[in-house]
Design a protein around this nucleic acid. Structure first.
Length: 491
RNA sequence: GCGAUUGUAGUCUAGCCUGGUAGGACGCUGCCUUGCCAAGGCAGUGACCCGGGUUCAAAUCCCGGCAGUCGCACCA
């Protein structure tokens, strides 16, 4: 599917569309419709169960989307997000001023403002590399969206540019409240805001986005993991040194590429989530190692999790695994004057952070892209049953009082536990087709035998499976258990 | 942000060049029909991205904005 087709499908069926659509929309903002909101929640629940709830040391927290400026100054965002851009007066191509100056051999001090940049440009007569024209006056560009936190509008603040900061800011309190031991993980599913220059490609680059992040705080001297479980597991990796994708075991990564065990273990954990929980095919996922200039300065090891998404034109980032060292807690120790190091076995330790970061919107888009299949006339969203917005649909076979009554009773029983859709309109085949397209895995039909006391099939219904189109009869009292078994997360 | 290009019912599209009644397909709704995979019949629903200009008259021409796509740049 191409990007336009996916966006049209998402709109037509009720997954997502531009915010303020009736006013023409606004770049970088999207709203979720009912089906999209359900799909997003299913993804979030699967993520939470898999990465957080299955580990006794990891905890879900939540936090404010607005932050005062101090922590974001300490974290480096106020400065580092503040790029100065220069545009060519002729071709209007924009460049990062510090990079352009550096290319011309001019040294720029960190955090140089537009004034300083313009002076340097003039002094060294730096021109547009393309057509040798002069630059327009430079502009400061801050990726963070600023807000005022008091009525007088004097208290500066920002919408948080990443949920990670919320975890770092709450580390000290949680450490004391919870266990006073490491490793400790703090997970957040929440919104983050970035003033992107050019938001594009549907849910890929947004100005308001949802992140699912797990920050694991650990003692660098010891980060025990159940490494053995994944020792032989193979993952696709594109190492920075070769830029060529290899399929390599977790053990091999440690041996041949010097990746620490705890890091390699989490690569396998993430790979397993994508392949087994979400169902992404092996050849469509890899880790892209970032190094040199591509890597965020604080990261010791930085890999993007990329999935091959047709509507985005190839492998695109849906998440990241970052070994951030002790950068974050050290920065906030300096910024807040509160010592965030902790005492472990009698020695002071500044916890290191391993960050598992995922873009929820991107993953929702990715799921629709990967699992939407067209087979002749049939269109199917072949999501795993526990990810499907609706778990089941109930169809009365025909307009018949008894059948309708039975269908209604069944709906009342199931809706307490499952998201179930009742469809009475159109031929049975049309109703199956509608459910196939939005991914409903089970269609339950109440037919004449279901309500005929003389029939051996009395009090049973047919359950039709989306992927195989196969039908079987199930006793109505057993339906709840049947569906429960199908949508259970097995890990 | 720059350049190219596009914008017509829920979706896809004809019409635009050469101004004059906006047409089709699918979908959706209702009724009839129908004893399990988009059947059929009848009826219905619904659109020119927004604002300005030119003109007797604008979906069509012009200007501005917004949004999408592609390329460049950006994406600590």
């Amino acid at each position: 599917m191409n990007i336009d087709d996916l966006a049209a499908f998402a709109k037509a069926k009720g997954f997502f569309w531009p915010t303020a659509e009736i006013y023409g929309g606004i770049a970088g903002l999207y709203d979720y419709g009912h089906l999209g909101a359900l799909l997003k929640r299913r993804f979030e629940q699967a993520w939470l169960s898999y990465f957080v709830e299955s580990n006794d040391d990891y905890y879900l927290i939540d936090g404010a989307n607005m932050l005062p400026d101090k922590p974001l100054i300490a974290s480096g965002h106020a400065e580092r997000f503040n790029d100065v851009l220069v545009g060519c007066s002729k071709c209007h191509t924009y460049y990062r001023a510090d990079v352009t100056l550096a290319d011309s051999g001019v040294k720029v001090s960190e955090g140089a403002g537009p004034k300083e940049i313009d002076e340097l440009m003039k002094k060294h007569s730096v021109k547009c590399p393309k057509d040798k024209s002069d630059f327009l006056p430079s502009k400061a560009f801050n990726m963070m969206i600023d807000v005022h936190l008091n009525p007088e509008r004097t208290e500066k603040g920002y919408l948080r540019p990443e949920t990670a900061q919320t975890a770092y800011l709450n580390f000290f309190r949680e450490f004391n409240v919870l266990r006073k031991s490491l490793p400790m993980g703090l997970a957040i599913i929440g919104r983050a805001y970035r003033n992107e220059i050019s938001p594009r490609q549907g849910l890929y680059r947004m100005r308001e986005l949802i992140q699912a992040e797990l920050q694991i705080f650990f003692d660098p001297a010891a980060f025990p993991t159940p490494f053995e479980k994944f020792r032989k597991r193979e993952v696709n990796v594109v190492p920075y040194s070769t830029k060529k994708q290899v399929r390599i075991s977790v053990e091999g990564l440690c041996k041949d590429y010097g990746i620490p065990e705890f890091y390699a273990y989490h690569m396998a954990l993430i790979d397993t989530f994508y392949r087994e929980v979400l169902g992404v095919p092996e050849e469509k996922i890899h880790f892209l190692e970032k190094g040199g200039d591509e890597k965020a300065f604080y990261n010791k090891i930085h890999m993007d999790i990329e999935v091959d998404v047709e509507s985005w034109g190839g492998f695109k980032e849906v998440g990241g695994l970052h070994y951030r060292g002790d950068y974050d807690l050290t920065s906030h120790t300096k910024g807040s004057n509160q010592d965030l190091s902790v005492s472990i076995d009698g020695k002071r330790v500044m916890p290191n952070v391993l960050e598992l970061s995922f873009g929820v919107d991107r993953n929702v888009w990715m799921l629709v892209d990967i699992f939407y299949k067209i087979d002749g006339e049939r269109k199917m969203l072949m999501l795993k049953p526990y990810l499907a917005p609706f778990t089941a649909a109930i169809f009365p076979l025909q307009k018949d009082e008894k059948i309708n009554e039975a269908a209604k009773a069944l709906h009342n029983e199931l809706k307490a536990k499952f998201r179930v859709f009742v469809d009475e309109g159109g031929s049975i085949g049309r109703r199956y087709a509608r459910m196939d397209e939005i991914g409903t895995p089970y269609c339950i039909t109440v037919d004449f035998e279901s309500v005929d006391k003389k029939s051996e099939n009395y009090n049973t219904v047919t359950v039709r499976e989306r992927d195989t189109k196969e039908q079987k009869r199930i006793k109505i009292p057993e339906l709840g258990k049947f569906l429960e078994g199908k949508i259970a997360l097995g890990f």
